[in-house]
């Protein structure tokens, strides 16, 4: 306890010879809900990969749940950025959640078993039902996942990430491709999970507005550097202007929504931002505009 879920100190990540970002420091404490913001290509997914241990830190220190990245993957619930399931995927939502529980174990679950195996099977089914209840997906968890809407799929995927009672949730753009109502309700769900289960969550997003009511803090990545702090300190004209190095204006609408005007746009070809392999989170374009 007292150990932060995520501790990054003056870290840098290089892919090939290019430095994605450097001098990044951040903390996420137990039970905290933190958003990782930034324009497309600013290196948000790269940061998640570094936290998962898929990319080494070229400088500085990264520690996750008190250990080096990758060492405590069992205690991390990771939700990759993804397209939804194909419509013809003929498995139930609850099967997808169950795979999150024991899908990495070799062998098959025996359909007919007794004794300890049977009670373990019952416990697994109970846990799956419980976590599906937590995310409010009970009504449709037994339908084929491909037939569900994006918001319904996203809830089940969050259940899948939660099913092993992780101490840390890493969610890569879970609000992407959801409509505004669903963005709000999924954000509320993550905030609720952080509070009720004491789970720390780092959620990657490029729009902070659906999250505003639930966030503890934000980390804002731009031009290879990061600023960390409460939303009202980070998403401001002064801070973002300093971060981007060009004049940027933050407007507050009457309903409290934040609008960032004048930030350098990434080049248009860049929408494959969480693509494959070493180009993931392709950096260096955020300052190109």
């Amino acid at each position: 306890m007292g150990e932060p879920a995520i501790a990054v100190d003056a870290a840098a990540v290089r892919i090939g010879r290019r430095t994605i970002w450097s001098g990044v420091s951040m903390r996420v404490q137990e039970g905290e809900f933190v958003a990782l913001l930034g324009a497309n290509g600013s290196g948000k997914s790269t940061l998640l990969k570094a936290l998962l241990g898929a990319l080494p830190a070229a400088a500085g220190q990264i520690s996750v749940l008190g250990r080096p990245p990758g060492a405590s993957s069992g205690a991390i619930g990771y939700l990759p950025q993804r397209r939804s399931f194909a419509q013809e995927t003929r498995l139930r939502g609850s099967d997808i959640v169950r795979l999150g529980l024991d899908g990495d174990r070799w062998g098959l679950p025996l359909p007919f078993s007794w004794g300890r195996t049977a009670s373990r099977g019952r416990a697994a089914r109970r846990r799956v039902a419980e976590v599906i209840e937590t995310v409010g997906a009970t009504a449709y968890a037994d339908r084929p996942i491909g037939e569900l809407s994006g918001g319904e799929q996203q809830r089940l995927l969050i259940a899948q990430a939660l099913v092993r009672r992780p101490e840390l949730l890493l969610l890569d753009e879970p609000l992407d491709s959801l409509d505004l109502a669903n963005q709000g309700s999924v954000a509320a769900l993550v905030g609720e999970i952080c509070r009720s289960e004491g789970v720390a969550a780092l959620l990657v997003a490029h729009d902070v507005n659906p999250l505003l009511a639930y966030l503890d803090r934000v980390v804002y990545l731009a031009r290879g550097h990061a600023v960390e702090g409460p939303v009202e300190e980070v998403v401001t004209t002064a801070t973002l202007t300093r971060l981007y190095g060009v004049p940027v204006e933050v407007l507050r609408a009457s309903d409290g929504r934040l609008v960032v005007v004048g930030q350098p746009e990434p080049p248009a070809h860049h929408h494959d931002r969480h693509g494959h392999g070493p180009h993931a989170g392709d950096p260096g374009h955020a300052d190109a505009g």
Partner: peptide
């Protein structure tokens, strides 16, 4: 049933 998930983000609101 309509999968009502059209991405609807007002232009310019990127914080």
């Amino acid at each position: 049933r309509q999968p009502a998930d059209a991405p609807a983000r007002p232009a310019g609101v990127i914080a």
